Amino acid sequence: MGVFVASTRPKVVVTRNLGPETMPLLLERDDVEVVVWPEDTYCDRKWLLENVRGATGLLVMLSDRVDAELLEAAGPSLKVLSTMSVGYEHVPLPELAKRNIRLGYTPDVLTDAVADIAIMLALMASRNAEEVTAVVRNGEWPKRPWSPFMFCGPQLSASTVHPQRTAGFIGFGRIAQATLKRLVPFGLTTCLYAGNPATPADPAADAAHARAFGLPRVARVGLAELAAESDVVFVLAPGGPATRHVVDAAFLRRMKSTAVLVNAARGTLVDTDALVRALRERWIWGAGLDVLEGEPVIHADHPLVKEPRCTLLPHIGSASIETRQGMAKMAAENLLGGVLGHAMPAEFTGTK
């Protein structure tokens, strides 16, 4: 009769298959034991609580709930938590710190993909894409007699009629600046942004940004001025209590009636009820949202779904093939680095 010998390799638990480009980085190693949730669905909580016992590393998705219960189930062996996301609101940072668990995340790699989506949403919202697409899909186009201003919306780019174009950014980090870079060829003349109130203004940095982007003006301003002066407002700040409903009724009322709002950050930054009213009463021209409060539980009767000038996407900002592959690879490398005591490509240190 053979003798059972428990594995001495550190165990890592992965809550989703990371694809054929990344999984071999884990499965073909002989120095770790890999346990993977076998379905391409939300990881079952009971399965996770059972399999995480004795794990040294855990790789999760943004949709996985990480809490004290899960960390207790893992036990003192857990050294690293790797999340395949740039956000870490789903991770209890104090609990990790208390247990000396390292945290890996996936910043930078999704910057360009989210910036692309932000521009797409700005164009769709300004040119009534949701509303006019429905006209075609519903067979109503033949019933609409042509008129000089049929289907018109405000132009994102500068023109002889409106040579001045201002973009406003709530948050001016990597994604915002990548978005600004894409806007410059549209003839943008001014960039306004609102930053973290705890960070002092830096006019020299603003002047350097203006030179780098080839713009007449880049300036940090208050939210009221940003709302009133911008032709398009991009919400690209971190989530969390400090930024909850930073775009509220007062902000929306200050916006131009021809302005559009784009949110590609977190749904909690925009007050849903206020935005619904702003769209219905035409305080603003339109909105393009990749994120919503309460997502993904958004049904067909949601008030924003019913708004013809609101373009909604199911949180696909990072959903390019190249970006998701890059995120998966970074998450796997973070996991291995933490488990084996090596450097991690992107470790959260509490200073971001």
Score class of each variant (00 low, 15 high):
293 E>V: 12
144 R>T: 11
84 M>F: 09
36 V>M: 10
322 E>A: 15
233 V>G: 00
133 T>N: 11
291 V>A: 06
329 K>D: 14
23 M>W: 02
14 V>C: 12
102 R>C: 03
314 P>M: 06
302 H>M: 12
42 Y>G: 15
331 A>S: 13
2 G>L: 14
259 A>T: 00
282 R>M: 12
249 A>G: 08
44 D>F: 05
149 F>G: 12
72 E>S: 15
213 F>A: 01
79 K>I: 09
221 V>W: 10
19 G>D: 12
351 T>E: 15
329 K>M: 15
38 P>S: 11
169 F>W: 01
224 A>G: 13
330 M>Y: 02
229 E>A: 04
148 P>T: 01
5 V>A: 13
54 G>K: 08
160 T>D: 09
93 L>C: 12
208 A>C: 13
27 L>Y: 05
247 V>L: 08
47 W>C: 07
264 A>F: 04
201 A>Q: 14
79 K>Q: 13
33 E>H: 12
246 V>W: 02
323 T>N: 06
159 S>I: 05
245 H>V: 12
177 Q>P: 03
45 R>L: 07
184 V>W: 00
352 K>I: 13
14 V>D: 02
57 G>S: 10
338 G>L: 07
140 E>A: 14
263 N>W: 00
8 T>R: 14
123 L>K: 06
248 D>G: 04
46 K>G: 15
89 E>S: 09
3 V>P: 05
187 G>K: 03
68 A>N: 11
302 H>L: 05
254 R>T: 03
246 V>K: 00
111 T>G: 02
314 P>R: 10
298 I>V: 15
58 L>M: 04
156 L>F: 08
61 M>Q: 13
75 G>L: 04
71 L>A: 04
64 D>I: 01
209 H>C: 15
308 P>H: 11
273 D>G: 10
261 L>Y: 00
188 L>C: 10
228 A>T: 06
200 P>K: 05
153 G>S: 06
76 P>V: 05
237 A>V: 07
337 G>L: 06
234 F>H: 09
85 S>Q: 02
245 H>Y: 11
206 D>V: 10
341 G>C: 04
42 Y>H: 14
222 G>M: 14
194 A>E: 11
319 A>V: 12
234 F>I: 03
316 I>F: 08
255 M>C: 06
290 D>A: 05
172 F>V: 00
274 A>N: 06
48 L>F: 03
45 R>F: 12
281 E>S: 06
269 L>G: 01
343 A>V: 09
288 G>A: 08
336 L>Y: 03
83 T>I: 09
139 G>F: 07
272 T>G: 03
34 V>Y: 03
315 H>G: 07
211 R>C: 11
333 E>I: 10
9 R>C: 07
135 V>D: 07
44 D>A: 15
144 R>Y: 13
157 S>F: 09
137 R>S: 08
343 A>G: 10
151 F>C: 07
128 N>D: 13
102 R>F: 01
206 D>Y: 05
90 H>Y: 04
111 T>R: 06
161 V>L: 14
25 L>W: 10
193 Y>N: 01
257 S>L: 07
340 L>F: 03
320 S>I: 01
151 F>P: 12
281 E>W: 03
172 F>S: 03
310 C>F: 02
306 K>Y: 08
313 L>F: 09
242 A>C: 07
105 Y>V: 12
